[in-house]
Design a protein around this nucleic acid. Structure first.
Lengths: 218, 218
DNA sequence: CCAACTAATGACCTCAAAGTCATTTCTCTT
DNA sequence: AAGAGAAATGACTTTGAGGTCATTAGTTGG
């Protein structure tokens, strides 16, 4: 029984990832302010002091968490959209449906909620989110829209504003669920919303057909 | 020279309002966690201890702030919308424009941002916001939509989801400005967004055969 | 005009969680 | 295998803001 099991191991390379992974859970569960670094440490299987070998401060750890989640959840969406060849009218339903069912693993909306909450305290956080998430999506979408306009498939107008018209309802719907849960009588069914809004917005974006002037009920 | 100026005055009735007013500013500027009650007190012209005569805890004060802002900024919007007699096609542009220019006084979006951020720590806050803001607006809108559908002015579909289609882009646009400021190249111009999205969504909501809806009911 | 009442004060307490560091113990090099 | 080097520990310090309370002093009723 001289089999001495070590009290701990050196895991210089593995630790940062494990700590970030633990931190994601704790932050998502409690929010930034209420998250205790001792909890993060415990969940990562280390001790609070150890965290400080890898992250100088709580803020630093949070930044790392945001960048990690952003990085792991964005490539898939972006590549899928960028690889798509076809009209916006075909892409929009696909895009919104994908956003509806899943949104990664539920950690993205939770993180988004936190970033919104803490962005006043840490403005660089908002910047990370903007540059890595929002800006990319808007660039992609407005590019596609401008394209569609050039081909006469889409009415004239500001492409960025149209991009908001497309994604806004989904963003709002997800925020609704994140904030109020699914219990509210107004909670939108996300797949339904995605399908219906896709149909609605595609119609709304269609150019005026010659000889078919836009007339809605007065 | 017996003119004794008092060190302080009793203002039992005025204090709560002044404290809330000061608290709005401080909370909006720093967020809940970073807001110091001593700052609130100073700005209200009192001393920290005084706050506790009127509010038991920091959370209580925050709740009061939310309710105050909600109460003062909601009646106007709701009454205006409710008094409106006309088709949705006319109401939507007006509604979105009103939301765009001002959104009250800029404190509502800031507050909304805070509520989003702190709602995990204080779930009842989310509930206040839901019941007094979100629910009311959605009820109003989806009612109008159902109405329009009954009159054959609007395509069939889930009225709540349509309500999200209408307000989602504006909500998202305001959040964008609140989070990323107006510097981003993607920052939407809110009046433009309002006008363009109103046009887009009204078109998208129009029924297939204008003037001849399939299931028209007198 | 005085006394009971209480709004307001400000010095104080508390306490939890961020952050530190001397020490231990594993691991890598030679 | 030994000792240099650094990963990990855990007990410790710090801090700063929320919250308390005995006391002071405007206010008001009789």
């Amino acid at each position: 029984m001289t089999d001495t099991k070590p009290k701990w191991n050196r895991r210089k390379d593995a630790r940062p990832g494990e700590i970030i992974e633990a931190a994601v859970d704790v932050f998502v569960e409690h929010g930034f302010a209420a998250a205790k670094l001792s909890d993060v440490a415990t969940r990562a299987g280390v001790v609070k002091g150890t965290l400080y070998r890898y992250f100088d401060t709580k803020e630093d750890l949070f930044r790392a968490v945001v960048q990690h989640v952003v990085a792991t959840n964005l490539q898939a969406i972006e590549q899928a959209a960028q690889a798509f060849r076809g009209s916006l009218a075909e892409l929009v339903p696909v895009l919104l449906m994908r956003a509806a069912d899943g949104m990664g693993d539920g950690r993205v909306p939770a993180l988004a909620r936190m970033v919104i909450g803490e962005s006043r305290a840490f403005p660089d956080l908002a910047r990370i989110w903007h540059d890595n998430v929002v800006s990319r999506i808007l660039t992609l979408l407005s590019g596609l829209i401008a394209n569609g306009q050039a081909r006469g498939e889409i009415r004239s107008g500001d492409p960025t504003a149209y991009a908001f018209s497309i994604v806004g309802p989904m963003v709002t719907g997800m925020l609704f669920h994140e904030l109020f849960g699914s219990a509210s009588p107004h909670a939108p069914n996300l797949p339904t919303l995605a399908a219906q809004h896709a149909e609605t917005i595609v119609r709304g974006l269609a150019p005026d057909a010659p000889g078919n002037p836009p007339d809605f009920q007065p």
